[in-house]
Design a protein around this nucleic acid. Structure first.
Lengths: 226, 226
DNA sequence: TAGATTGTTAATCGATTAACAATC
DNA sequence: TAGATTGTTAATCGATTAACAATC
């Protein structure tokens, strides 16, 4: 290291592209651990994660020096270090709003609990849905949002409503104190400073694939046919 | 333009970051059109899309010159040009494999059809699911994959199976002739050259939010407490 | 010591942004 | 013509990658 960290400095900034890959490494390490592997090289881990080893080593270098030259990485140790860096060693209460088909799928998603995320409430504005119990949690009125956020200290909200309702839901979430939103509704959300929004958009992903697919088919769609 | 395109050149390369934003612009234009707007400036469109106007103009410049200086863009005209560039003016038959909670949600997703994507088959390996009809399409055995791909000329496949099955499904898809895969299973897929894979991963998105959330909470998680 | 593999450097590449000339 | 807004330039920033010295 070229410069020692001073006590008052916050931990080194990790580039956004690296942050987005850390969960991938974490999953690859878990898979390796499950298969009984205790040590791995950057080459082996990179392959499991689907990246090249130079990128992996560069990414890990932002966290610290957790490997051993000539040997590799201890799977469990590295796994813990990455988990701690991401923050998934702690418990994250989550609220899901909009319990339609997608909300059901999300509520039942097992990867939630296994990574420190705990669904504390399922909310829906439709009274007909409020009778249901999904994945062992009962669906409650959307109006309970503020009380639930306050009670459980919820910081992360998931929006699985139709597009038309999403902005209102986001506004209410932010007002209630939520500062991170995962949005599945196909609409751009506007939120204030300090609130993070990530978007998952099926339609956009398909369109990106379609674009590349169209290119693959050579001159088929070309307008300059001679 | 500095250099004229020669007849044999394929159309200008569009940067990947731009390709990923074109569907966002397309949606924003559709929203504007629905609200009766016929002309808009780069500033207005950029705001609707959630980007800054310099980036928008730069992105559009890769497609051509579709605006009018001093005036702005014709909403319908620009919408058509972007749709054509992405490839959503044509019809894209799609197969979904894995009809659990998520598969149900995907099959019912309305944004599919509205953008030129047509679900031609729902496949599942579990015979108990093969009795079902979802969104007007009946669930068929996974073994029918090859026949369906051949019959409809399917180029795009969606994987909504558990992680353990995903690689096998991908292999079968590629062998059947599918060259674009949208993967919802939380696993890294390995596919040959020429096959595009995009990944949608709820758990990773949540972990990225958790990382930033942890930072917001100031020194709470710091190890260097004095 | 010899072989292996990390952590880091430096070069390259791609994306973003502000500014403004071109032009409606 | 005067005002508005595009399309493009060029500077800056961030991400990727190969190469290799450090070191187990």
């Amino acid at each position: 290291m070229t410069s020692a960290r001073t006590p008052h400095e916050t931990a080194r900034e990790i580039p956004e592209a690296t942050v987005a890959r850390l969960p991938v490494y974490l999953r690859a390490l878990s898979t390796l651990a499950d298969s009984g592997t205790t040590t791995c090289s950057s080459e082996a881990l990179a392959q499991a994660a689907g990246v090249n080893s130079a990128k992996l080593r560069k990414d890990l270098s932002y966290l610290g020096s957790y490997g051993t030259r000539g040997v590799g990485y201890d799977v469990d140790y590295l796994r813990y270090q990455i988990a701690r860096e991401i923050g998934v060693t702690q418990d994250w209460p989550v609220v899901i709003v909009g319990i339609g088909n997608l909300g059901h799928a999300l509520a039942n998603f097992s990867g939630f609990r296994s990574r420190g995320f705990r669904v504390v409430a399922l909310l829906d504005a439709d009274p007909r849905r409020q009778a249901e119990v999904v994945a062992g949690v009962d669906v409650r009125p959307f109006d309970h949002l503020e009380a639930i956020v306050a009670e459980h200290g919820v910081a992360i909200g998931v929006i699985a409503t139709p597009a038309a309702a999403a902005q209102d839901v986001a506004d209410r979430m932010v007002e209630a104190g939520i500062t991170s939103i995962l949005n599945f509704a196909p609409t751009v959300l506007s939120v204030g400073e300090g609130v993070d929004v990530r978007k998952v958009d099926l339609s956009i992903e398909l369109q990106i694939l379609a674009y590349h697919e169209q290119r693959k088919n050579g001159a088929l769609g070309e307008e300059d046919a001679s």
